[in-house]
């Protein structure tokens, strides 16, 4: 790595540049899995916005989507993969380094 690339901003994950995606990943990082509707309400976005962001995270291999049922009620579960968890950890480390003494 060159001196120019040593700034912690280069370690930020571009996919987590979106506040909504960062919020979704942060929420999933604190659980083994969470229900789609719960994450939607927590992040305060619509179904379609969350679906779009989750699709991007799923495509990157950071999130898995699992559909199931409890009784007659359909449920969609979201979970962070090991790769997603590691990327989120690196992203937070970079943010902490950028924040420096302000943190």
């Amino acid at each position: 790595m060159t001196g120019e690339k040593a700034h912690p901003r280069h370690r930020l994950a571009p996919l987590l540049g979106s506040p909504v995606r960062l919020s979704v990943v942060a929420a999933l990082a604190a659980a083994d899995r969470a229900e789609f509707g719960y994450v939607r309400d927590l992040v305060e976005v619509s179904d379609s916005v969350l679906s779009k962001q989750v699709a991007a995270l799923e495509e990157a291999g950071w999130v898995t989507v699992e559909k199931g049922r409890v009784g007659r009620r359909p449920r969609t579960w979201l979970a962070l993969t090991g790769e997603g968890r590691a990327a989120y950890g690196r992203h937070l480390d970079a943010l902490r380094d950028i924040a420096g003494p302000l943190r």
Binding site: S23, A27, L28, A31, L42, L95, R103
Partner: peptide, 11 residues
């Protein structure tokens, strides 16, 4: 960072 911590804490 604060936003991420808030999300984690809520979950």
């Amino acid at each position: 960072l604060e936003g991420a911590v808030r999300m984690e804490r809520a979950v």
